[in-house]
Amino acid sequence: MNILILGNSEDVHAVHLKNALTQAGATVYYLDTHLFPTQLKMSWQPDTQLGCLNLPEGVKLDFQDIHSVFWRSLSSIDLPSYLEPEQQRIALNDSMSALRTLIQACPARWVNSWQAYQFHKEKPLQLSRVKQLGIAIPATLISNDSEQVLKFAQSQPMLVFKPVYGGTHTQLLKESHLEPERLQLVLGLSPVTIQEYIPGTNIRSYVINGSVYSVEIRSPALDFRQDLQAELRPVELPDRVQQQCLAITKALMLEWTAIDWRLSPQGEYVFLEANPSPMFLHVESKTGFPITQELVQLLTK
Results as ranks from 00 to 15, higher is better:
K18E: 03
S76M: 10
T101Y: 06
G210P: 07
G7Q: 05
C106M: 09
P107M: 05
K60V: 11
Q243S: 07
I208Q: 01
I5N: 02
I198H: 01
D11L: 06
P138Y: 05
Q154F: 00
Y165K: 12
Y82F: 13
L74G: 01
P107V: 06
T48A: 12
D47R: 11
H67S: 14
L50K: 10
L83W: 06
F70H: 11
V130N: 04
L272Q: 07
P107A: 03
E273Q: 12
T27I: 02
Q266N: 10
T140N: 07
R182L: 08
T193Y: 00
I248H: 03
T22S: 14
R233M: 14
S211T: 12
Q88W: 09
F152I: 04
G288E: 12
I5V: 14
E231F: 06
P85V: 07
P234N: 10
G200L: 07
F63L: 02
D65I: 08
S73M: 08
I137N: 05
V15H: 05
T33G: 14
P238L: 13
I203A: 05
S285C: 07
R100F: 10
S143I: 00
L61I: 06
R225A: 15
S68R: 01
R233L: 15
L150P: 00
A91H: 04
D145L: 04
T22H: 03
E284P: 13
I3N: 06
Q242N: 15
V270G: 08
P157N: 01
L74V: 12
V235W: 05
L252I: 06
S211A: 15
K250L: 02
S205V: 13
N54C: 03
Q87S: 10
F224D: 14
R240A: 15
L298F: 04
W71G: 02
G267A: 11
L246D: 03
S285R: 14
S219I: 07
R233K: 14
V160W: 01
D47W: 08
N8Q: 03
E231R: 13
A116H: 08
S211Y: 09
E294A: 15
V215G: 10
R225E: 13
P56F: 03
D94P: 01
L173Y: 00
L185M: 04
E255C: 00
R204D: 15
E196L: 04
S76Y: 10
T201S: 13
A26Y: 01
E86C: 02
L40W: 01
F161E: 04
V15S: 07
N144T: 03
L31H: 00
L99K: 00
Y206F: 15
G166N: 12
V15A: 06
L31E: 02
S190I: 10
I142L: 04
